[in-house]
């Protein structure tokens, strides 16, 4: 019985390894992403977390292979999901330390997308499992859902525009779980009336999003390491 179990697990692993090596859709996505060595993108970031009141802000996003990424708000303070920005498609696919398993076709925003689950083979990676929804027609990833070891789950949805050939989105939405936020009155010295609406909202909504709408990419013109 024990031997049988080991055999089944062994066959599964071999099959999975075969998927990883041979999944053509992932290969096409990777190939497209490999066209970009680095970029500097400008865009507008919107933070939508129930307990945060922040206005839209201009951001610059710096990327350099293999997976260096930095979001900088122009002249201001930026709020980013903890560890979230590093969980990008590049960081998932570039190291090739995963097993890819196709898990059916789903319709998302009118497109039939191939869902592929990635399971990391390197225990040191900070993500546990990730699902990519890829359009087989243009080999673009429209949605990812990643579970990390320490920072919960992240859902990233993407829209594409003029930089689709490079696999770079025109709009990207990070969805993440938020924890409770509460500071004692003694620290904030806020003894007056609280804003009941804000409090209500904070209690109800446990999900937050950060949305970046890109207006321009400068691709493969070099980015200094000091930016990261």
């Amino acid at each position: 019985m024990k031997k049988l179990s080991l055999l089944i697990v062994g066959i599964c692993l071999i099959q999975a390894a075969a998927f990883a090596q041979t999944n053509p859709l992932i290969e096409r996505v990777t190939k497209k992403l490999n066209l970009v060595n680095d970029y500097v993108a400008t865009g507008v970031m919107k933070t939508d977390v129930a307990f945060i009141k922040a206005s839209l802000g201009k951001v610059k996003v710096y990327f350099k292979k293999p997976n260096l990424l930095k979001v900088k708000k122009e002249g201001g303070i930026s709020l980013l999901p903890k560890g979230g920005v590093s969980v990008t498609i590049n960081s998932l696919l570039n190291n090739k330390q995963y097993i890819a398993i196709e898990s059916g076709v789903q319709v998302f925003k009118g497109k039939s997308l191939q869902a592929i689950k990635l399971i990391p083979t390197d225990e040191k990676l900070d993500w546990v499992i990730s699902t990519l929804w890829i359009d087989p027609v243009d080999a673009l990833v429209y949605k990812t859902f990643t579970t990390t070891k320490e920072n919960g789950t992240y859902e990233i949805t993407m829209e594409y525009g003029q930089y689709a050939n490079y696999g770079l989105p025109s709009k990207l939405v990070f969805g993440f779980n938020t924890k409770d936020y509460k500071l004692p009155n003694g620290i904030t010295l806020e003894f007056g009336d609280e804003d009941p609406a804000a409090k209500q909202k904070a209690l109800k909504q446990k999900k937050g999003t950060i949305e970046i709408t890109y207006t321009k990419y400068v691709i493969n013109e070099g980015v200094s390491n000091s930016m990261f």
Binding site: F51, A54, K182, T188, E194
Partner: peptide, 8 residues
């Protein structure tokens, strides 16, 4: 940082 929310 206010008691129940953050303002930026």
């Amino acid at each position: 940082m206010k008691s129940n929310y953050v303002v930026l």
